[in-house]
Design a binder for these strands. Structure first.
Lengths: 319, 319
DNA sequence: AATATTTTTGCAACCGGTTGCAAAAAGAAT
DNA sequence: ATTCTTTTTGCAACCGGTTGCAAAAATATT
C-alpha cells in the first residue's frame, strides 16, 4: 500500500484494483484520514475554490442571491470564498488575494461595480464572470444579467398602459451604470408618447432611507403621478414617505419597483415590480463558470435574461 | 537570491537584509509574483481560512451578520469560506469538507442549529465558536450570543409595564431551542403577576408567511391583547395579518419582536422590539476565534451579551 | 590586522499530495 | 507450461513554499 495507491483510491478514474481500494478505505476509516484538498491543488492546479465577491451587503435581495450562489456552487463541488468589498478596499488587493489562494475562478456579484473591476481579474488570468453586471454588446468579461435599458422601457410602458401620463424616475446613485441605463430606457419609451411627461431624480443609495428621504423631498413640492423606482428597497422607502405624507397608493400616486425581492410580495407591502430572474441568472453564472474551468480562453459572452412585470397593488389596474 | 530569500522577504519577522529584500521585491514586481498561500499552508499548518457555516439564508438579519463577519474576518487577515447548510446536507459532510480544506477554524452562525452540530467540529479537532447559539452554563463549545430566557422575561416585563394583562407568545418552530428558551422566560415572568394571563402558539418557521398565517388563524378566534413574537420577520408577518384583519396596532393589539433588524426601524414598520447586539456578538466571536488560533485547547466559554428594548410604535406607551 | 561575534544567506529536507514510467502481478492465448 | 497482453503497483520527481542548520558575509572587538 504505497502513497500512490492511496492517492489513486481517492481520485476517481484512476487505476486501482477493487481489493486495494478496499484496503485503503479501511485504513482511512481507522485512521480518520481524508485527503488534503490544498496539497493536491498544488500539483493538479485546481482548488475548487471560487471567489464570490460583492459589495451589496445591505440589500436583502443579495441574501437571496448568496443563498442561490452558495447552494449552486456547493452542488457542483465548488467552494465559495466570500469577499466583502467595502469602499476602502483597493480592488487590486482582492485580485492579489484571490491569486494567493489560487481560486479557480471569481464571480463578481454586483450591480454597481464597474465592468473594469471584473476586468482586473481577467487581466490577472483568473476566470471571471460578472453577475448582475452591465450588459454590453461587446463585453470585456462574461456578463450575466438583465438588460437595464429594456427594463426602463418596460417600466415606462407599464405605467403608461396603466393610464398614468405624469411620470418620474426615482433612481439610485446617479453614478451607478444600472441607474443610468434604466433611466435611458425609461426616457426612450416616454419619448414615444407625446402626451406623457416625465422627470427624474436620484436617491443617494439603493436603501430604504435614501428612497424615503428623496420621496419626502418630492412630496414637499408637486410630485408626479407615478414613479419608477430603481430598486425595491428604494420603492419601499418611497412608499413609506408617501404614507407619511398622507398620500394614497395607488389612488394618488403609483409606484413600480425593480427586482421583485421576497419582501415585495409581503401582503403589507404588495409592491408592483419588475421581476429580475435571479435564479436563472445565478444558475447560468455557475454554468458559465464551470465551462470556463474547462476552457479558460473562452470568448467573453453576455447572457441576458428577460424581466417581467409582477402586478401587485401599487399601480392602478389597467383599464 | 535563493528560494529561501524569497520566502523570507514575504514572511515578516524573518531575517533578511534590506538590500536583499529590495532585490526580491523588485523581481517580484517585474514577474508579477506573489506567494502561494496554499503552498505555504502546507508547511506552516495555517491557512487563514475560516469556515463560516450557517443555515439562515432567509432571514435578512443574517445579511447584516454576514456583512459583519466577512468584514471583521477580512480585517484580521482571515478568509471566510462560506457554507450554506441546507436540510439535506449531512453535518458530517461539512465537517469533512472543512478538514479537507484545512480551515483554521469554523464559526457556526445560527440560532437554530443544535449545540451538537458545533460539537462535531470540536470532536474533529477544529476550533469552533457557535455564534447566536444556545446559552448554556456548561457549554460543549464556545458560544457567543444572548440569553434567550432572559429575553423572554424582558418581553413579558415590557408588555406588563405597558399595561397589557392578556399576553401571548408567538414563537418560531416549537423545536428550536431559542423558541423554547424564550417561551420559558416569558412564562416565568408572567407567573410573577397573578393578574396576568398568557397563552402561546407557534409559527412553522421564522418567516413572514409563517407569522402571518399563524396570526391570521389567531384573529379568527379571540386573540390576546399583546404578542411577543420570537423574531422580527415573524412580527412583521403578524403585523400584516393584524392589518388585514382590520385590527389597529397598538390600540387594539400590541406587538413586540426580537432582533431589531434594520427593517424594524423602517418608518412604515416601526416595530418595537428587543435588540440583539449583533455587532458585539460578531466582534466577540471573531476575537474568540483568534485567541483559539493561538491556543486551540482553550476551555469552552459562553459569552452572553445583554439585549435591550427598543421602543417604537407597536406597543402602547407606558403609563 | 587579526580574531571574535553577529547577521545574512543558501542548502537540503520536508509539508501532503499527484503522476509518468517501469517493474510486478494477473489474466489470456497458444 | 510458456509466452504475450493487460492491469495494477511502487518508485521517484515534482508542485511551491518553509525552516533548521551550517557556511559566508558583514560588524565589532582587541
Amino acid at each position: 500500500m504505497s502513497r500512490s495507491a492511496v492517492s489513486r483510491t481517492f481520485t476517481d478514474g484512476a487505476s486501482v484494483s477493487p481489493k486495494m481500494r478496499k484496503k485503503v478505505e479501511k485504513a482511512a476509516q481507522d485512521l480518520g484520514y481524508s485527503p488534503n484538498a490544498l496539497a493536491s491543488s498544488l500539483t493538479t492546479g485546481r482548488t475548487k475554490l471560487i471567489g464570490l465577491v460583492s459589495n451589496n451587503f445591505h440589500n436583502p435581495l443579495f441574501l437571496e442571491i448568496f443563498d442561490l450562489f452558495t447552494r449552486g456552487l456547493q452542488d457542483h463541488g465548488l467552494r465559495p470564498l466570500l469577499v466583502n468589498l467595502t469602499d476602502e478596499t483597493d480592488p487590486q488587493n482582492s485580485v492579489r488575494m484571490m491569486r494567493q489562494y489560487s481560486v479557480d475562478g471569481v464571480v463578481v456579484a454586483s450591480s454597481t461595480l464597474p465592468p473594469a473591476f471584473a476586468g482586473a481579474f481577467r487581466d490577472a488570468g483568473v476566470p471571471v464572470v460578472h453577475s448582475f453586471g452591465r450588459y454590453s454588446s461587446s463585453p470585456e468579461v462574461h456578463v450575466v444579467g438583465i438588460d437595464n435599458v429594456e427594463c426602463g422601457r418596460m417600466a415606462a410602458r407599464t405605467l403608461i398602459e396603466s393610464g398614468y401620463d405624469d411620470l418620474a424616475f426615482l433612481g439610485g446613485p446617479e453614478t451607478a451604470t444600472s441607474t443610468q441605463d434604466r433611466l435611458a430606457g425609461f426616457a426612450q419609451e416616454v419619448a414615444k408618447h407625446p402626451q406623457v411627461r416625465m422627470r427624474s431624480s436620484f436617491a443617494a443609495a439603493y436603501t430604504f432611507d435614501a428612497g424615503r428621504a428623496e420621496m419626502l423631498r418630492l412630496t414637499q413640492g408637486n410630485p408626479a403621478k407615478a414613479y419608477f423606482c430603481g430598486d425595491d428597497v428604494l420603492s419601499i422607502g418611497a412608499l413609506s414617505a408617501l404614507a407619511e405624507a398622507g398620500l394614497r397608493v395607488p389612488e394618488d400616486i403609483g409606484v413600480i419597483g425593480l427586482n421583485d425581492m421576497e419582501m415585495a410580495g409581503w401582503q403589507n407591502i404588495n409592491l408592483t415590480t419588475i421581476r429580475q430572474p435571479i435564479e436563472q441568472i445565478v444558475r447560468s453564472s455557475i454554468e458559465l463558470m464551470e465551462s470556463m474551468l474547462e476552457d479558460a480562453g473562452r470568448y467573453p459572452e453576455a447572457r441576458i435574461f428577460p424581466c417581467k412585470v409582477i402586478e401587485r397593488g401599487t399601480l392602478k389596474p389597467k383599464a
